[in-house]
């Protein structure tokens, strides 16, 4: 992996600023291909300018790997074309479904944690990886209620990763949100995941909407307990890129840079040895 360090989500609201940054730049940018595909004009120009400066990660929205129906090969074809141009280092998607019975919903619904769903999703991941000729990293998502679950979430994720041979995008904030919402132990949960498969990490803020419910909004700064969980978690993982996700209530760039710096400090501290080894080897 050639990308390391902390990156930032590339959104229209801050596109110009990210392109113009001359110091404290993110190490890479991440965007949803769906928000930039089949475009031209002003926005495509901005994306190309950004791609000249930053390495790229793509984090998809509409693949809907957990859909009960057939994969959309027309979409995959477009995606492949897009990747040919922008060459993302990692393509990740959510372990959820956002399309059902031939209708997109554009948000992440929880897949029932069941064996037949594992078989179904794993098969779909294999097809996608074969078609795109690149590995897929799937992300653990926030969910607000289990749906007809026959096993716990960690077992579900682990089996999908093992059966499909895909990679894992560990969203530390999502683990925190789910642990809070469903009353389980976040560290135990992380320990039960196939951590050797983690190729990418997401960090974000959230919003508590009631005494027992947190919604994963990406609209607030990261809270301290999530930073702590992050520090603990990365001590168990080989160095991978880290993304700061911020989709709403986007603050001044300086505030985002400070948040990235805080993440970078933790990363440098925990992975100092690994980084030294990597450097020596290269």
């Amino acid at each position: 992996m050639s990308i390391s360090g902390v990156g930032l989500g590339f959104r229209r609201d801050i596109a110009k600023q990210i392109i113009a940054l001359d110091s404290n730049r993110p190490k890479f940018i991440e965007f949803a291909p769906e928000n930039w595909m089949q475009m031209g004009g002003y926005w495509k120009k901005k994306l190309r300018e950004a791609a000249e400066i930053y390495p790229i990660m793509c984090h998809g929205l509409s693949l809907s790997i957990g859909s009960p129906e057939e994969l959309d090969f027309e979409f995959l074809k477009e995606l492949k074309k897009f990747f040919d141009e922008f060459k993302p280092e990692v393509y990740s998607e959510h372990l959820s479904y956002s399309k059902c019975d031939n209708a997109h919903l554009y948000d992440l619904l929880p897949i029932p944690f069941r064996q037949d769903a594992i078989d179904h999703v794993s098969e779909r991941i294999r097809v996608v990886q074969d078609y795109l000729e690149r590995p897929l990293a799937i992300e653990n998502v926030s969910y607000y209620t289990p749906v007809a679950a026959e096993m716990d979430e960690a077992s579900f994720i682990t089996q999908v990763v093992e059966q499909s041979g895909c990679n894992l995008l560990l969203d530390v904030n999502n683990v925190y949100v789910n642990a809070f919402n469903h009353g389980y132990n976040a560290k135990e949960f992380i320990e039960n995941l196939p951590l050797d498969k983690v190729k990418y990490i997401h960090m974000a803020g959230h919003e508590q909407v009631s005494p027992d419910t947190i919604i994963d909004t990406h609209g607030q700064p990261i809270i301290d307990p999530v930073f702590e969980l992050f520090e603990w978690a990365i001590g168990r993982i080989k160095p991978v890129p880290i993304l700061l996700e911020r989709d709403f209530n986007i603050p001044q760039m300086a505030e985002l840079q400070a948040e990235m710096a805080k993440l970078q400090n933790i990363v440098d501290k925990v992975w100092a040895n690994e980084y030294a080894i990597e450097k020596r080897n290269s």
């Binding site: 009960p68 059902c100 919903l105 029932p112 007809a148």
Partner: peptide, 20 residues
């Protein structure tokens, strides 16, 4: 299709609820 009809129906229920 490896997904059982029953699981598919549950997913449909949630999606339909979101829509309506």
């Amino acid at each position: 299709m490896l997904l059982k009809k029953e699981t598919h129906n549950i997913q449909t229920k949630l999606a339909d609820y979101c829509k309506t």
